[in-house]
Computed example of a mutant assay.
Amino acid sequence: MADGSRRRAYIGSFTTAGGHGIRTADVDPDSGALTALDVHEGLPDPSYLALSGDLLYAVSEAPDGAVAAYRADGDRLEPAGPPVPVGAGPTHLSLHSGHVLTADYGSGSVTAVPLRADGTLADRASGVLRHRGSGPDPERQQEPHAHQVQPDPGGRWFLTVDLGTDSVRVCTLRDGVPRLHRETRLPAGSGPRHLAFHPGGDRVYVLNELTPTVAVCRWDAVSGALEPVSETPVLPEPPTGDAYPSGIAVSPDGRFVWTATRGQDLLSVLAVEGGGLRPVAAVACGGVWPRAITLAQGRLYVANERSGDVTWFVPDPETGVPLRGGSLRVPAASCVVLG
């Protein structure tokens, strides 16, 4: 938050596709509407962001990948030290046990970078976990492709989602080194991309990119065991043309799951019923190629990469169906976080 009264949004973008870097925007406290403020240039392809207090962390999704930290100074971002090298093509990052963890898509690895006491990055990574394996898709799954790294709600474990190996790995961080605890296989060719925890802490929803589905899994936080139990299509009917799910979010009350699908340019609503999911509706995402969705303050923010905008929606509290509120022009938008 830039001051004591106004919220800020930070929007990543692909500079190699016309993006300007990391955009700062004001968030209207009543409507959730975004108003563009400053933009920070200099980091190539800051495609995913994570926020902790007044520090913003960003991956540079480049062949020679890196992670960088910035301090919010009013409406501006100021570098909090130089970028730190990680694996190739990092697509996601999260904070866990005094470290920044990055999911390195290109090198199929997870990298841990320690945080100093003031939250800035150490000079170098402390450890790397390299995934192994492949999948049946000859174009997308010839090798591992770590796409997300997500701590569990209890903070003991973190989960890495690998599109290339059709698996989710449960891991620990010991002495700054990511270590494999166990690996859970999903159906061959599913291409898992991102996951989200149910607020009850006993279920995980894994969004599959190559077969537009959500896998519902049981989660045991004591033993660190993930068990697939069912799979639900995210689209109302079999797609024609491209259909690549990208982002997933769960309502704080645990009643709804939302997903975004590129190519079809849809937001899907699934109701949580018992241990499974029931498709409810699908609505236009407000742009083209929705790369990521964020749920904050009762609103869904969608980063539409190819139309170059961030669109916000208000989900109906009874049905979960999103109602469009407005949009902000952001070329090659890739993700949104709110402070």
Score class of each variant (00 low, 15 high):
228 P>L: 12
228 P>D: 09
228 P>K: 10
229 V>Q: 11
229 V>P: 06
229 V>Y: 07
231 E>C: 08
231 E>K: 02
232 T>I: 07
233 P>T: 12
234 V>S: 01
235 L>R: 07
236 P>Q: 08
236 P>H: 12
237 E>T: 13
239 P>C: 11
239 P>T: 13
240 T>W: 11
241 G>W: 10
243 A>Q: 03
243 A>T: 10
243 A>H: 10
244 Y>N: 04
246 S>N: 09
246 S>F: 03
247 G>P: 03
247 G>M: 05
247 G>H: 03
252 P>A: 11
254 G>Y: 09
254 G>Q: 06
255 R>E: 14
255 R>C: 06
256 F>E: 01
256 F>K: 01
258 W>G: 00
258 W>F: 07
258 W>N: 01
258 W>S: 01
259 T>R: 03
260 A>T: 15
260 A>L: 12
263 G>A: 12
264 Q>L: 03
265 D>M: 06
265 D>Y: 03
266 L>P: 00
266 L>Q: 15
266 L>S: 05
267 L>C: 06
268 S>K: 09
270 L>Y: 05
271 A>P: 01
273 E>Y: 05
273 E>P: 03
275 G>S: 14
277 L>K: 02
277 L>F: 10
278 R>D: 06
278 R>C: 04
278 R>Q: 13
279 P>M: 04
279 P>V: 12
279 P>K: 08
280 V>Q: 06
281 A>C: 08
281 A>R: 06
284 A>S: 14
284 A>Y: 09
285 C>F: 03
285 C>W: 00
286 G>I: 04
288 V>N: 03
289 W>E: 01
289 W>F: 15
290 P>L: 09
291 R>I: 08
291 R>W: 05
294 T>Q: 13
294 T>F: 01
295 L>A: 09
295 L>I: 11
296 A>N: 05
296 A>S: 15
296 A>F: 13
296 A>G: 06
297 Q>Y: 10
298 G>N: 12
299 R>Q: 11
299 R>T: 05
300 L>A: 10
300 L>I: 15
302 V>R: 00
303 A>L: 11
305 E>A: 07
305 E>P: 00
306 R>A: 07
307 S>C: 10
